[in-house]
Amino acid sequence: TFTSIVTTNPDFGGFEFYVEAGQQFDDSAYEEAYGVSVPSAVVEEMNAKAAQLKDGEWLNVSHE
């Protein structure tokens, strides 16, 4: 299960995956970082959410 939350205070020191406002979700980078295949429906969902981000916001993507 993939989830996401919007934050204005990303923790770059941890093992977190963020999408910056104005960027798209990079499923290849996510797969490389976590060894998890990302279904195309999830990629579309995360890109739709990322498109709604305002300046200074980040989308924190995770999975269980």
Rank of each mutant, 00 (worst) to 15 (best):
V38W: 02
I5Q: 11
V42T: 06
Y30H: 01
E57R: 02
A29I: 07
D27F: 15
Y30K: 01
T7L: 07
T7E: 06
A51F: 06
D55E: 14
D11H: 11
H63N: 05
Y30I: 01
A51P: 04
F15H: 15
F17E: 00
E20T: 09
G56M: 05
F17I: 03
D11V: 12
S28F: 11
K49G: 05
F2G: 00
N60Y: 15
M46I: 15
G35H: 08
A50P: 03
G22N: 06
N47P: 02
V36K: 05
A50D: 01
A33Q: 14
F25K: 01
E31N: 09
W58N: 00
K49D: 04
E44D: 12
E16W: 15
E44A: 13
Y34K: 08
E64H: 14
G56H: 05
V43H: 04
N47H: 04
S37P: 11
L59F: 01
F15Q: 12
F15G: 14
E32P: 01
Y34H: 09
Q52S: 10
F12H: 09
Q52Y: 08
F15V: 11
F25R: 00
E57H: 05
N9E: 12
K49A: 09
V19Y: 01
G22L: 04
A29T: 06
Y34M: 08
V36N: 02
D26K: 06
F25S: 01
M46R: 00
E44R: 12
Q52I: 09
T3P: 02
V42L: 05
E64K: 14
Q52L: 14
E44M: 11
W58D: 01
K54V: 08
V42N: 02
G14I: 08
K54Y: 05
S37W: 11
A33F: 13
P10I: 05
A41S: 13
V42W: 06
A29G: 07
S28I: 14
F15M: 13
P39S: 06
Q52D: 09
K49S: 07
K49W: 07
Q24K: 12
S40R: 14
T1S: 12
V61F: 04
E31F: 15
Y34A: 02
L53C: 04
K54D: 05
G13P: 05
A51S: 11
V38I: 08
D27V: 15
G13A: 11
T3Q: 09
E31K: 13
S28R: 15
N60I: 15
E45T: 07
H63L: 06
S28K: 15
P39T: 04
T8A: 08
A48C: 10
L53I: 03
S62T: 12
F17Y: 08
G13C: 15
V42S: 03
W58R: 02
T8L: 09
S28T: 12
S4D: 03
G56E: 04
E32F: 12
Q23Y: 10
A41Q: 11
A21C: 08
A48E: 11
N9G: 06
Y30A: 01
S37H: 14
L53K: 00
T1F: 12
V6Q: 02
G22F: 06
Q24V: 11
N47T: 09
D27W: 15
D27A: 15
A50T: 05
Q52F: 09
F17P: 00
E45G: 05
E44T: 10
Q23M: 11
G13H: 11
S40H: 12
Q52H: 08
G56F: 06
A29H: 06
F15E: 10
A29R: 10
M46C: 05
G22T: 04
I5K: 11
G14W: 07
A41D: 11
T1P: 09
V42H: 02
T3D: 05
N47A: 05
Q24N: 11
S37N: 09
V19H: 02
N9A: 11
A33N: 08
L59G: 00
K54R: 12
L59P: 00
E16G: 15
S28G: 11
G56Q: 03
P10L: 04
S62I: 13
F12L: 09
V43A: 08
N47D: 05
T1R: 14
S40C: 13
K54G: 07
V6H: 02
V19D: 02
I5M: 13
D27S: 15
S40I: 12
P39H: 02
A41N: 12
W58S: 02
N60E: 10
A21L: 05
A33P: 02
A50C: 07
N9K: 11
K54H: 08
V38Q: 00
E45S: 09
V61I: 13
G22Q: 05
V36F: 09
G13W: 09
F25A: 03
A29M: 09
F12A: 06
D55R: 14
D26M: 06
I5R: 09
V6K: 04
Y18H: 05
E31H: 11
V38E: 01
S28A: 14
V6P: 03
Q24S: 11
Q52V: 10
V43R: 11
T1D: 07
Y30S: 00
P10D: 02
D27E: 14
F12W: 12
D55Y: 11
P10C: 08
E20W: 15
G13E: 12
E32H: 13
G22V: 01
A48Q: 11
D55A: 14
D26E: 05
A50L: 10
V19S: 00
E20C: 10
A50Y: 00
E16T: 12
V38N: 00
E57I: 00
F2N: 00
I5W: 14
G35C: 09
P39F: 01
V61M: 03
